[in-house]
Amino acid sequence: MLRMTLAVFRKDMTLTLLRGNGLAQALLLGLLLVFVFSLSQGIGENLSPRNAAAVFWLSSAFCQVLIFNQLYALEEVNNSRLGLLLVPQPLQAVWLGKALAGFVLLLLAQCVFAPATIVFLGQSLSGHPGPAASILLLTDAGMCALGSLLGALAQSQTARESLLGVVLFPLLTPLLLAGTGVCAQALGGASGEADAWIGVAAAFDAIFLAAGLLLFSFLYTGDE
């Protein structure tokens, strides 16, 4: 299963980064969100660290929706989804491979969003970066586990972008709250309860990684 997972991961990374628009659309949308929120600042004003962290995670969430739509749209061309279904390997390898690819792509996008948030929203890294790094990895893992599962939900749907967003965003709320709470501390916000939020994010990851493993094979089928 691991070999198949890595094969799907390599295929998706290659197709996404070396062909077409790559990450450009997702990056542009995230940056636009940061820019639009920067317009709410008056002259000489800065957003609070908590608001800035929320904008960062909002950009990441929209970016994630586009990433998983793109990853699952790869197999819709020439109906190559049937090819993946016919491989004599556990189907969960497709879910895991796409989740891994989404995880790396999201981290790459966040490497752009983080400095943009600091520059455009007038923030500084004056808090402890350690917990923020932990929550970044945990939150991204949870977002990608769920994104990879529900990305398959929108297969063959013409309205897949809006559909995935409507379904995914409310489910991600606990994770986004955890990410916002801890990242705000790294930007100099009030400290406290970082450990508890890291626990919530870890629990979310555990629940939705297990759910993905169990449920993906029901969703990813040859149905049109």
């Binding site: 599962l149 606990p174 919530v200 449920l215 029901f218 969703l219 089928t221």
Partner: peptide, 26 residues
């Protein structure tokens, strides 16, 4: 297909409920 997709979402959605209570305590 719709019934299947809704069933998966019905399971996933309820898995969020424990996190509701955990976040309420935090």
């Amino acid at each position: 297909r719709k019934s299947l997709v809704c069933a998966v979402l019905g399971v996933v959605a309820f898995l969020d409920v424990p996190l509701v209570f955990v976040s309420a305590r935090i």
